[in-house]
Simulated assay, not measured.
Amino acid sequence: MPYGPGRLVQTDATQVNERKFLFTLMDMDNVNHIVVFMTGQAAFPDGLGAAVYINWPSSSGETSWQLIGHLTNQKPSAIFKISGMIKDQNSASNVFSDMASHPHHAQLGISLEPLAELAQQVPVTSVNPSEQAATFEEFVNNMLMSFYNYSTSFSKSLAEIASIASTMDGSVGQTQFLPLSVLENWQKLFQAKLSRDVNFWKK
């Protein structure tokens, strides 16, 4: 069953044949993600999973089916990013090409296929790897700056710490303090690693 943020779940699939099902997705211009999931009422038959396709019809009504991912009994739901996908015929898959389409709506196709075949299929992506890396690096740098700014907002000078300690009953002696330079050096080291290899944290 598919749905988009702020929309009702769609259950009105058209059964094309024994293993193919079709959903019409209305007004998709401003939708960035869709969720497709199994309801839990029935599992896929043994040895089968679902290939998930999306179709962006052209103004002339021609179809452009693109594989966006898979569902299996071990992975019964998935979120697919569809913003930025090329809506043309260049990377079309013809698995549903015999289906009529409406130029103002998208279509979602579910095709039950052997797991061995699903494992060999490569979904299209809405952004290329270099764009993904740039987006991740930007996110991490923003996260680092947020953490740095938050942490340093609590910083105290030695004189301030001494003043606070003089007004307390000695419990401050149990508190540990971290020099701000340690945080600054860690941030620089992390950013340097990130600039050399955006995936260094996976290693």
Rank of each mutant, 00 (worst) to 15 (best):
K87S: 06
L115V: 04
L108A: 02
N90I: 04
L194E: 01
S171P: 06
G40H: 05
L115D: 02
K156W: 02
L183Q: 04
Y3L: 11
Q121K: 12
S59M: 15
R19Y: 08
R7F: 04
F80C: 05
P57C: 09
T14R: 09
F136L: 13
V127S: 02
E18M: 07
M143I: 13
M145V: 03
M85W: 02
I82Q: 00
S111M: 05
V182D: 03
L48T: 05
M28G: 01
G173L: 08
Q89C: 09
Y150F: 13
D88S: 08
L178V: 13
V172R: 02
H104A: 12
S58W: 10
S195T: 15
N94C: 05
D169W: 03
H102C: 06
F200S: 07
V95P: 01
N73P: 05
M143Q: 13
S146F: 15
G173M: 08
S157Q: 04
S60V: 06
F96M: 04
Q121V: 03
Q10N: 10
K81D: 13
I79P: 04
T72R: 08
K202Q: 12
Y148K: 09
A119W: 06
S166A: 15
N142D: 04
G109H: 02
V31P: 00
H104T: 14
F190I: 15
N32S: 12
A13G: 01
F147I: 14
S163F: 05
S163G: 11
S97V: 10
S151M: 09
S59C: 13
L25Y: 00
A42C: 10
V31S: 00
N32M: 12
A42V: 15
S91D: 02
N141T: 09
W65D: 00
V31Y: 01
P123H: 14
Q121G: 02
Q132A: 15
E62T: 07
P5W: 03
T63K: 08
F177Y: 13
S195D: 14
F139D: 07
V35H: 06
F37Y: 13
N149M: 11
S171H: 12
Q121R: 10
I68E: 02
R196M: 15
F190C: 15
D169I: 07
P129V: 05
F44I: 01
S130F: 04
L180D: 08
A134I: 04
D29M: 10
P76G: 08
A165R: 11
S77M: 14
W65H: 01
N90M: 09
R196Y: 15
W65V: 01
G170C: 10
H70N: 10
F147K: 07
H102A: 09
S171E: 13
V95G: 04
T72W: 12
H105E: 08
V52Q: 02
D169F: 08
K188C: 08
M38E: 04
